[in-house]
Simulated scan of single mutants.
Amino acid sequence: MTKQPYAQEGGILRGPGNFDMKVGVVMSFHAVASLDPGSSVTILITGDEEIGSLTSKKLIESAAAECAAVFVLEASADGGALKIGRKGMSDYRVRVTGKAAHAGLEPEKGINSAVEMSHQILRIEALASETQGTSVVPTVLSAGTTTNTVPATADVTVDVRAWNQEEQDRVDIGMRSLTPVLPGAILSVTGGLNRRPMETTMSSSLFESACAVARDLGLGELAGAKVGGGSDGNFTAGLGIPTLDGLGAVGGGAHADNEHSVIAEIPRRTALLAGLIKRTLLPVGKTNDEPITSAIGR
């Protein structure tokens, strides 16, 4: 807080996590407070999304299974655009087991795991597809123990992002089909899919509703954006539940020292959210006697 103190200046709100995504949390409470009594809405706030939602995924999916739509209060994309698509995410760990030997006296008796891993990294990177927008990125790499020893083990983690499930599955098959190059080397691949893609087919109807609500409220035209990062909205969209993301704060600098939100946009976005919930709760042909459950989630 000393480095990044809470402050309001020049119409800008500053402070840790305000854009991603404390403002969105506050918006959810105010939006729901404006609804008619008895409206069927679930608010779910989780705290582990940034580290993979390892403990909350099942809770998110079970809560969303009872809902007709999910609105994610993650921060907006650039310029306040709603997030209508997100890449799916997969995480892998590749381990090579070789054989240690003295690097100076008898290196030929070893199986160099670092050399084997070099072969594998080139194969892994080749699984990416620029035309499909699929990234396959080797990230954290380690091998060996001492400078005079043929490394017996090597590890690399791999970050995969894809716009559609077919690409995500293609890369998964490729990762699990890796085979050793050096005689005697042993290769293992663990991990896999973390989040299915949030494809635009799962957000299109809700985005159209949001645009209609914005026009009714005089908020102007809304923009939609596809982004590479994942959110808990990937989980709900992966279940086939209509999901619209990026309904939270307008600003920038997520996770950085300059994180900020535009104060004037907060009541506007809250009104948009409330109107969208009301429209979803009572779609065409429904009455108050036929409630449809909606959810606001992180």
Rank of each mutant, 00 (worst) to 15 (best):
R123G: 03
L193W: 01
G233K: 02
K99D: 04
Y92H: 04
N234W: 08
L206C: 05
P138A: 09
A101W: 06
V156A: 03
G229M: 03
I111V: 05
G230A: 14
A154K: 11
A212G: 05
T139M: 06
V227Y: 00
G224W: 03
N234A: 12
E106P: 07
E199N: 03
E166H: 10
E116D: 13
V189N: 04
M202D: 02
A223I: 10
S231L: 09
L193N: 07
E166A: 14
D91N: 09
A103F: 07
A103M: 03
A162T: 11
L222A: 15
S177I: 05
T201A: 12
M117P: 07
D216P: 06
H102S: 14
P197S: 09
I111G: 00
V150N: 01
L222C: 15
S90I: 03
S204F: 00
G233R: 07
S205V: 05
I121L: 10
G191Y: 05
T97H: 14
K226I: 12
E108S: 01
G233V: 02
S142T: 15
E167P: 04
L105P: 13
I186F: 08
T157D: 12
A128C: 11
V171I: 11
A143Q: 08
T149D: 03
V115C: 06
P138F: 06
G191T: 00
E221D: 11
E116A: 08
A101F: 12
Q120R: 08
G229H: 07
M175R: 12
T149I: 14
E125S: 13
N234C: 12
L122E: 11
M198R: 01
G192V: 01
P151M: 13
A212H: 05
N148D: 13
A154P: 11
S231Y: 06
S209W: 00
K109G: 15
L222V: 15
D91Q: 08
V136H: 10
L193T: 13
T145A: 14
R176Y: 10
D155F: 10
G144W: 00
I124D: 02
S205T: 07
V181G: 11
G184N: 11
S129I: 10
S188H: 04
V115R: 05
A214H: 04
E130H: 10
Q120K: 09
T131S: 11
A143I: 10
G228K: 03
A210L: 05
V137E: 02
G174A: 05
T134H: 01
R170N: 10
